[in-house]
Computed example of a mutant assay.
Amino acid sequence: MKTIEAYRIKEEGYHPFLIREGWQVAQLNYVDTYEIKNIDKLDIHHHTDEVFILLKGKAVLIGARFIENSPVFEMELMKPNITYNVPQNTWHNIAMEEGSEVIIIEKSNTHLTDFEFHYLTAEEREALIELVTQLLNVV
């Protein structure tokens, strides 16, 4: 029996790898779904905060609140080794550049049961792409 477990996820996409009673750790590795030009929705979790930690690459954490049924975006260019929290009931997504890796910590099985989507209109997508692209080009 090992006293210390080690994990390294290399495959693209979202991979919950450590699920325990009440919480889970996942790794999100770049996949083209998270390329800014491909983001078509926001999601929300009603029963958990969601923590993000950038391991490598470039990523922008996207938050949004709705005013008159339209999203108002708030963004954070993620820095490695900084812990970012998206509180429960907050619309969000993440834009990633190729090669990026992010750790995500949240309530267990959130990816199976606790999510709702808002699909972006063409105008909302255009605004989001412009804002994220500007932020990514700052560095």
Rank of each mutant, 00 (worst) to 15 (best):
K2C: 08
E5W: 14
A6Q: 13
R8F: 09
E11K: 15
H15Y: 06
F17Y: 14
R20K: 13
R20P: 05
G22D: 05
W23N: 09
Q24T: 10
V25H: 09
Q27G: 04
Q27Y: 04
L28T: 00
D32M: 12
T33N: 05
T33E: 11
Y34E: 09
E35C: 03
D40W: 03
K41R: 14
H45A: 02
H45I: 01
H46I: 14
T48W: 03
T48D: 01
F52Q: 03
I53W: 04
L55I: 12
G57R: 05
G57D: 12
K58M: 05
L61N: 01
L61P: 00
A64D: 06
F66R: 06
F66M: 13
I67Y: 12
E68K: 07
N69F: 11
P71T: 06
F73E: 02
L77D: 02
K79E: 15
T83P: 10
Y84N: 07
N85V: 15
N89G: 02
T90K: 07
W91V: 00
W91F: 07
N93Q: 12
A95G: 08
E97P: 04
E98L: 11
S100G: 09
I104N: 04
I104G: 05
I105E: 02
E106F: 00
H111N: 04
L112R: 07
L112I: 08
T113V: 04
F117A: 13
H118Q: 12
H118N: 14
Y119E: 09
T121M: 06
E123L: 09
R125V: 11
R125N: 14
R125M: 13
A127R: 13
L128P: 00
I129C: 08
T133A: 08
L135D: 00
L135F: 01
L136K: 10
V139K: 12
V139I: 13
